[in-house]
Write a protein that binds this DNA or RNA. Structure first.
Lengths: 223, 223
DNA sequence: ACCAAAGCTGATGAAGCAGTCAAGTTGTTT
DNA sequence: AAACAACTTGACTGCTTCATCAGCTTTGGT
């Protein structure tokens, strides 16, 4: 993100290194914003986390707000991708299981991203207004239509598909956003154990599938 | 919270008025901290929301951090109370339904409190270490033991009771913490409609009860 | 009516903050 | 190797922020 990219024939190697630096800054920012919120994060802390001088961050992103927005943009992509498994020709149980698995993978591998998103929504989502109201809404409408198709065909019981998504998101994301609380209750010292995520995932699938009148077995449905 | 309450015979009326002012400040702070986070909230904004000069907040609470901690303390009480319905002599379906209803009432009536708590946990819960690790953990252990008792008696299917609580909390709290997102997806303008909460609550009960091998009917189980 | 303590607040200070800039370095093109 | 653009960063600036404090008003007990 050069401030003024004048030269259209810009050198590739240089461009690549610059992009690498920005990725590094964004990765560090994900953690800092998650742990301090937008208001609590300082440019000094963001710079220290990235191992760069603060002026460098300003060179690449201009302002703290623009850095935050760039980070959010990245995170929103991840959010939408997870629902790819829900297609009309899939079976309800397999599709929902795969969706839950994808969301849980996201919670396990990118907890800071999940927290930044949660923080943003929590605070009213001013930066997300168009994402929530347009892109996400349209995507959810599509997926809801697929579920309603399954219901009409008698492949699953009647459920409000949107509220089902709200609950599915809440359950899967809680393993990232509320990890501190879960750890405290389970008495885990530093991080949740892999089996904690596995137990959670299995229980979410059980609740969702049974809630939709679908059978649930502990063993993997979707190999 | 007089800074130095020297006189043990202190006037009651005065004390009461002071306590009233503090309640007013705390109520305003709940909203401001929820909307801006700890770092993003300024004493000026907190003061404006309370309709008082900033120096007044400092008189009553000393520092921003102490005001925040006082608020958090209040909120934690609410959190624990909700699980009162879970007692060994209750029926699993009635007790779980009542718990879900209590948590949903909390999300509907005190969304800002829920958001402040969520924000705190999200950011690592430094101020909550002893609450999460001692009070909450003990309370959850007690309630988990009750559920395990029901399972041994064959009153409900075997489930990991702690993870069941994590999911129950996540589902109910999402109607406060992620209200912005839910509103956007449902296309609600200003606030969620009462029936949105009702649909959510019914679906949560359905998922939880069926997940535990208990029957679920749309009509109220617990009059 | 008087007084001591509690309650209140405008003015002010010190610290930390985001953001700018000029002077430098690096890398690429020609 | 010269020229130029992209990139880097230490030093700086003006602003916002939290917190203090001195002096004021209110209140309740005597």
């Amino acid at each position: 993100m050069q401030i003024v990219p004048k030269n259209p024939d810009m050198a590739r190697a240089r461009q690549q290194r610059s992009a690498q630096a920005e990725q590094r800054i964004l990765a560090a920012a994900e953690r800092v914003f998650a742990e301090s919120g937008f208001g609590g994060a300082t440019m000094a802390a963001l710079a220290a986390a990235a191992g760069l001088p603060a002026a460098n961050l300003h060179y690449h992103f201009g302002t703290k707000k623009r850095l935050y927005e760039a980070l959010l943009e990245n995170i929103l992509h991840l959010w939408l991708e997870a629902s790819d498994s829900i297609t009309a020709d899939a079976s309800p149980a397999a599709a929902l299981s795969a969706y839950i698995a994808a969301k849980m993978r996201y919670s396990r591998t990118r907890p800071y991203a999940s927290k930044v998103f949660a923080n943003e929504v929590l605070q009213g989502g001013v930066h997300l207004h168009s994402f929530l109201g347009l892109e996400l809404r349209r995507r959810v409408d599509e997926k809801a239509e697929i579920l309603e198709g399954w219901m009409r065909k008698g492949l699953m019981e009647r459920v409000d598909p949107r509220h089902l998504f709200f609950l599915l998101w809440a359950m899967t994301q809680t393993y990232a956003d509320f990890e501190t609380q879960i750890r405290a209750v389970l008495g885990r010292a530093a991080v949740l154990a892999p089996e904690d995520y596995a137990v959670g995932e299995a229980l979410i699938k059980r609740l969702v599938l049974r809630g939709c009148g679908l059978s649930f077995s502990e063993t993997e449905i979707n190999p």
